[in-house]
Design a protein around this nucleic acid. Structure first.
Length: 715
DNA sequence: GCAAGGTC
């Protein structure tokens, strides 16, 4: 009897093995994959990892059209570029499965974990998922893992697996079909191939950015006045502000100033309050991403990458967590002892080690799979970390140290000055007791405005009372960190995907600006087009609806395939209408001014996002009354056979481009051409009069002859 | 090529 235990990821496989093994487990490898062998209660056990999803959905037949609903599970490395690392893991599971006669899924206990386990069993191990048992644990401690091992669920949770599968399919149906529809629309209107996309998370994210953009565009600044009193005490000047912070009427402001100037001014009241400020809570990923953005200006994606690197070096814990709580059984003392070896943390760590009871503050958020992010106590070797890694490490360590420290105590002082019946407020604030600020003041700033003592009733020496004209400001643009927060608040995306989805919006040319995000005209039009035709996809309600359906599948109130079928029928209708209006929608996407209702006149001139545009194509849309004549194609040279124009054409079925003669069908000259990159005519010819074109792709440029038999032919 | 979700 050999039992194969499948973990969600390598690190967890190791932990499970160490927890379940009676002695030290034996680590073995297949390819690059480590797995563990050991015995327990006389039973041979192998623990092997997946690396997240090993299988992904892909269309059964390769077409470029839509709608497409015929999909299947394929290895991730087949479906997506850059996933070749998964190959070894699938191989390893397949080979270990041959030796096993019992299977246990030990992935994270959530819908995705269940899908990872289900697909690994079915497609990598080649076994019936209903034969497998389930290890159910919520912490990776020895105690919890052993308990789970001795209380195995008899089967995997098929409700959860079905809900998860439905989520994958629905996201694919909606996302891929609508992305294809958008891409197709802009191609029909412009003749240009440009990938557009949307989805259950991209849609609403872009939408709230668009809403902010509109608020800013429509914003009319409104003037108002503030009144300030400059006063002197102990040879220093201080500025108090009028109790009403905005005065909308200038005459009123004038009146207040002239009345207040008459004086006399005296201290009406002094309010002093002490405020206790508790340490900040442990880092979940979102909070870390926000803090790293405000401290260092790192994008959420960059922060996740840095945190992942620190994790892989063993310096900090797993980053993709939404927990704000530290594990109860973590050995804080030993972590602190190690951190004390680094001079910059030594005084703080020593202070804490002197305390009897080490109790960190904790936040509200929880995560069944992982605790909050903390330093492990492993120390970076000198020079091991890059500047960015070192910055993030410092942030994580200081945050950790702060958790155990005393609250800071702040004094807030408010002096109310009355001058001829008008009240002005002088505010001060200072830190009385630093507490955790000692270690964390690098990353959090509190105002220090120290006021001299004031007594109630004392006369105030007023130097000046003045009014200042100000204007209301439009709402601020979102920063990348603020987008992540907003997504969290709306409950769209996950901790692991939000940063990447934001990057996708940049890649699509929907948004720009590294710190202050601006929606491009293209981004505005995409939301407009979707709102008009597929309002569901830009609404967070779609996520809510999916969640409800998943809940129903899990509880057995709904069937997976019926839910999928229902969504498919809904999409079929939507996509049919979309297709009929494709050309209009495409034209609308190209517009950069106006409301988007006008059609062919206001066109592609400023479609700045169309980076691949070739000269001469853009105006074509203007005189575009008819379906086929709508785009003026790019001429790359003269036809060697009939002297006609050689133009870029697209295969109707596959959407692929090629070079063909404008006199087709009379002349049948065609050349294949690379699918990627911008094509630039050179005017030169080569073999048998075939044109030479320049291809510009991702900053690279090269010239090729279009004749495949040419010696210089590439690809 | 297109989604969103795990993970390196």
């Amino acid at each position: 009897m050999v039992t194969l235990v499948i973990a969600e990821k390598p690190n967890v496989a190791r932990k499970i093995a160490y927890a379940l093994a009676e002695r030290k487990p034996v680590r073995k490898t297949i390819g690059k994959v480590s797995y563990y062998e050991f015995t327990r209660d006389g039973k041979k056990i192998i623990v092997a990892p997946a690396v997240g999803h090993l299988f992904s959905l892909a269309p059964k037949t390769k077409t470029y059209g839509y709608p497409v609903f015929d999909i299947e599970w394929v290895p991730v490395y087949v479906a997506e570029k850059g996933k070749s690392y998964a190959k070894d893991y699938i191989k390893a599971l397949a080979s270990l499965a041959k030796r096993a006669d019992e299977f246990v899924v030990a992935c994270d206990y959530d819908t995705e974990g269940e899908v990872i386990g289900y697909t690994a069993l079915k497609y990598a191990c080649g076994v019936d998922p209903s034969k497998a048992k389930r290890m159910k644990f919520s912490a990776l401690t020895k105690k919890d893992l052993l308990k789970a091992w001795y209380n195995l669920e008899p089967t995997i949770n098929f409700g959860m697996a079905d809900a998860g599968i439905a989520r994958h399919v629905l996201d694919w149906y909606w996302g891929v079909n609508l992305s294809r529809a958008l891409t197709s629309a802009i191609k029909r209107a412009s003749g240009k191939w440009m990938v557009l996309s949307t989805g259950r998370v991209q849609g609403p994210t872009l939408k709230f950015l668009v809403e902010r953009e509109k608020e800013i565009q429509n914003f009319k600044p409104k003037p108002y006045w503030v009144i300030k009193m400059v006063l002197e005490k102990n040879n220093s000047q201080y500025t108090a502000v009028y109790e009403k912070d905005k005065i909308w009427d200038e005459e009123e402001a004038k009146r207040i100033v002239s009345e207040a100037k008459k004086g006399p001014a005296f201290v009406e009241k002094v309010e002093v309050k002490q405020q206790k400020r508790n340490p900040p809570v442990p880092f979940d990923l979102g909070t870390l991403q926000r803090e790293a953005y405000s401290a260092f200006g790192y994008s959420p994606k960059k922060t996740l990458e840095l945190a992942q690197r620190l994790y892989e070096r063993g310096l900090s814990s797993y980053p993709r967590t939404s927990s704000q709580k530290l594990p109860k059984n973590l050995n804080f003392r030993s972590i602190l002892q190690n951190l004390a070896k680094l001079p910059e943390y030594k005084p703080f760590a020593h202070e804490l080690l002197g305390k009897g009871n080490l109790k960190p503050v904790e936040g509200k958020k929880e995560d069944p799979a992982h605790p909050a992010i903390y330093p492990t106590g492993e120390l970076p070797k000198p020079g091991e970390l890059t500047k960015d890694e070192a910055n993030l490490y410092d942030l994580i360590v200081r945050r950790f140290l702060a958790l155990f420290m005393e609250p800071a105590v702040r004094e807030i002082m408010k002096v109310i000055i009355n001058s001829n019946g008008h009240r002005f407020i002088l505010s001060g604030a200072r830190t009385l007791k630093e507490g955790w600020l000692k270690v964390y003041s690098k990353y959090v700033k509190f105002d220090e405005v120290i006021l001299p003592p004031f007594k109630e009733g004392e006369q105030v020496k007023v130097l000046q009372i003045k009014r200042e004209k100000k204007k209301t400001k439009p709402p601020a643009r979102y920063s990348p960190a603020a987008v992540i927060k907003k997504m969290e608040d709306l409950g769209i995306g996950t901790k692991a995907t939000r940063a990447q989805i934001l990057e996708t919006l940049y890649q699509r040319g929907y948004i720009e600006g590294k710190k202050k995000i601006k929606v491009t005209p293209l981004g505005m039009r995409v939301v407009e087009a979707l709102e008009k035709n597929v309002p569901d996809i830009v609404s967070v309600e779609l996520t809510r609806a999916f969640e409800e359906k998943m809940e129903e599948i899990m509880t057995g109130k709904a069937k997976r395939d019926e839910v999928i079928e229902e969504s498919k029928e809904q999409l079929v209708k939507i996509l049919k209408v979309f297709k009929e209006k494709e050309l209009d929608i495409g034209r609308m996407l190209l517009e950069t001014t106006g409301t988007g209702v006008t059609t062919s006149k206001t066109v592609a001139k400023k479609a700045g996002a169309l980076k691949e545009s070739a000269e001469g194509e853009e105006k074509a849309v203007e005189k575009a009354p008819d379906k086929e004549e709508r785009r003026k194609p790019l001429v790359v040279g003269k036809c060697p056979k009939c002297g006609g124009d050689l133009i870029i054409r697209y295969n109707r079925k596959t959407g692929k481009r090629f070079v063909g003669c404008s006199n087709w069908p009379k002349c049948n000259v065609t050349y294949p051409i690379l699918q990627r990159g911008e094509v630039i005519p050179t005017g030169k010819t080569c073999c048998n009069g075939a044109p030479v074109v320049k291809i510009r792709e991702k900053g690279r440029e090269y010239e090729i002859c279009l004749d495949m038999n040419c010696k210089g032919w590439k690809r």
